[in-house]
Amino acid sequence: MATWEDVHELAMALPGAQETTKWGNRTWAVQRGFVWARPLRPRDVEEVGEETGPILAVRVAHEHEKKALLAEDVDVFFTIPHFDGHPTVLVRLDRISRPRLAELVVDAWAEVAPHAVVAAYLAEHPSTLE
């Protein structure tokens, strides 16, 4: 399944993406973060239970997309009360395929990158956001 190196490689292949550290965790951003490492905090564990593998937070377009992902595969996608009302879904990185991860990373990047940059990228990669 996917690894942090996969996330790094996929994110850094996108125009304008930069890796940084925010709150002590790896974050990939264009103007603002689109995917980031999000280990559970003690309060999160109290609310949803322990997660042993790596967790990736992914920005999504809106709550409808978040709900669709949560319904798609409960073994891969989940959320915590901290993200209630926020367009972010959590991904159990060690349970997602690299191709599915690639789709999520590009979609998340497209939510925060400048519109002209996204349009140019999509013109060169037309099947990316199908």
Rank of each mutant, 00 (worst) to 15 (best):
3 T>V: 09
4 W>V: 08
8 H>Y: 06
11 A>W: 07
14 L>I: 03
18 Q>S: 03
19 E>A: 04
23 W>T: 01
24 G>W: 06
28 W>K: 00
29 A>N: 02
30 V>P: 00
30 V>L: 01
33 G>W: 00
34 F>K: 02
35 V>P: 00
38 R>W: 09
39 P>F: 06
39 P>W: 10
40 L>K: 11
41 R>A: 14
41 R>Q: 14
45 V>G: 15
50 E>H: 09
51 E>D: 06
51 E>H: 14
52 T>M: 14
54 P>L: 14
55 I>M: 03
56 L>A: 01
57 A>H: 00
61 A>N: 04
63 E>G: 01
64 H>F: 04
67 K>E: 07
71 A>E: 14
73 D>P: 08
74 V>G: 13
76 V>S: 02
79 T>R: 07
82 H>P: 05
83 F>S: 01
84 D>W: 14
84 D>Y: 13
85 G>W: 12
86 H>W: 08
91 V>L: 05
91 V>C: 02
91 V>D: 00
94 D>T: 10
96 I>Y: 08
98 R>K: 12
100 R>F: 14
101 L>Y: 10
104 L>T: 04
108 A>H: 04
109 W>A: 07
114 P>K: 10
116 A>Q: 13
117 V>N: 04
117 V>R: 15
124 E>N: 12
128 T>I: 14
130 E>N: 09
